[in-house]
Design a protein around this nucleic acid. Sequence first.
DNA 1: CAGCATCCTTCAAGATACTG
DNA 2: CAGTATCTTGAAGGATGCTG
Lengths: 112, 112
Amino acid sequence: MAQQTTKVALPACPVETTLSLIGNKWKVLILRDLAPGKKRFGQLQKSIGNVSQKVLTAQLRSMEADGLVHREVFAEVPPRVEYSLTDLGESLKPILNSMWAWGENYKQRFGQ
Amino acid sequence: MAQQTTKVALPACPVETTLSLIGNKWKVLILRDLAPGKKRFGQLQKSIGNVSQKVLTAQLRSMEADGLVHREVFAEVPPRVEYSLTDLGESLKPILNSMWAWGENYKQRFGQ
DNA sequence: CAGCATCCTTCAAGATACTG
DNA sequence: CAGTATCTTGAAGGATGCTG
């Protein structure tokens, strides 16, 4: 999979439409970590775990272009940038919740 | 993202656990197309759209190893292989449904 | 701090050909 | 039909260095 890039023509199938916007691991993790509230770039990088700046930046830019994420720059020294979910981004929470619930249940059945 | 490969140590976060099993486009599409019922290899390849045999085979094998998909071979000529969701695979339907619902709604708001 | 620019590596995935 | 076996490529992603 891929799509760094943004929404092109929408697929016929709604599932594919969703995949075209959050169809990779990073975006789901960004969503997860922004769900509780706004975070700075550095915080995000920490909470996600193993992302390079480059990748995180690219994913955030893509999600911003897709209207899922809001980016706010503060003119301070040192600079501060805060990311948060837009309403559209928030609307993805049910998907996230179902993934959370499934993973939780899976771990209880098969987990270590 | 990636994971052709299968479940290793489970991540702490349930969302990541889920991602480790269906964290790529192909698996979600396979899930979608097996949700209504069993399908043959060729049918799957058609309904998914643009998958090479190689990729489709690899994804199916991985999902089989993870216990999401059941593979049944019939000793016929020409050979027939049917794929279906296991109970565990079926249990992923809520995630799929939430993705379907979101995509549908998104298309109504922004789609052509 | 939050990035952009570069270079480099690796692996997923496409294409093609062959087979039980 | 449902694969397996190779070969190749393209893009994702890592590492490093520089800057407003």
